[in-house]
Design a protein around this nucleic acid. Sequence first.
DNA 1: TCAAGATAGGCAACCCGGTTGCCTTTGTCA
DNA 2: TGACAAAGGCAACCGGGTTGCCTATCTTGA
Lengths: 158, 158
Amino acid sequence: MSRSGADLALLLLAGFRTLADRATAELADRGFEDVRPVHDFALRSILSGADSTSELARRLSVTRQAAAKTIAALEERRYVARQPDSDDRRRTRLRVTEHGLALLRQGEAVFDELREQWEKQSGKASVSTLEETLRSLVGDSAIRLDSPGWIARLPDVE
Amino acid sequence: MSRSGADLALLLLAGFRTLADRATAELADRGFEDVRPVHDFALRSILSGADSTSELARRLSVTRQAAAKTIAALEERRYVARQPDSDDRRRTRLRVTEHGLALLRQGEAVFDELREQWEKQSGKASVSTLEETLRSLVGDSAIRLDSPGWIARLPDVE
DNA sequence: TCAAGATAGGCAACCCGGTTGCCTTTGTCA
DNA sequence: TGACAAAGGCAACCGGGTTGCCTATCTTGA
């Protein structure tokens, strides 16, 4: 009954996308439109201290230019703001706005609800087993993967 | 100990990316460079009967233009070829080349090996439990998801 | 039989999240 | 003070998508 390894990969992808898509939709319902996973990742990094373009770029393992674009998007949507900085090279310091904090809180809540939904469907044990298996396979630290950019890249997780 | 729902999503993504990245690297080692998951999906669809741009587009749930680009890439790499067709609207019919078949075979082998590797690490039971849980959660048919294009879209699986 | 409509294909332009290459500004330190 | 590191940003590009619009061919039914 066990199928090919490719199926396994597809299932993992489908699982992620199911969660991510539902979360995106739910967040849109709650008034946070135009939010993408990458925004959430970036916001978290900024919140935990990445207050400049270069620093954010390092934490997300992307180029400065990519980070700058992400920041521009976040700024446009008022999730982050800039403040003058003493070091005139960097000129501004990033700060997560109240709106941004609200997004993070809602995002967390949404994902938690989705997880609970899964637990209701398959049982708490199944979900945590799944999680444990995966964690042991990809490693706690492997949430930092280096690879081509055909998906929102994963940030460092402090 | 159980963490947030977002972690669950991240783990699924990390799992997929681990497999996909390793597969891509391994295929490159075996002489198939420049191969991306989307190529594999498309090739499989063509092999199982999607012999025109429009048909491939339908199976991959993308626009005809996107399918055309993918086909162009596959053709360039000699994984598919075109043949004249009786219907002059479509003008050509797609065919998977020997080279393309070789890629598919190698791809399957690589994924199977990766799966075995995981089984050695976590035990056969764990991997198949993981798979069963996921299958029940996303559904066998959910491998067709409709959503924004920030990742290689999944094809119909016949 | 022939006009309307469905179907296949393709071009151009754009989006998003990345990249590289190159350049300026500012700060630091020998 | 002058060399260099570090931050930022512009322009151009890429991959895998999108939409809008256009033509060519086949099919059908009045």
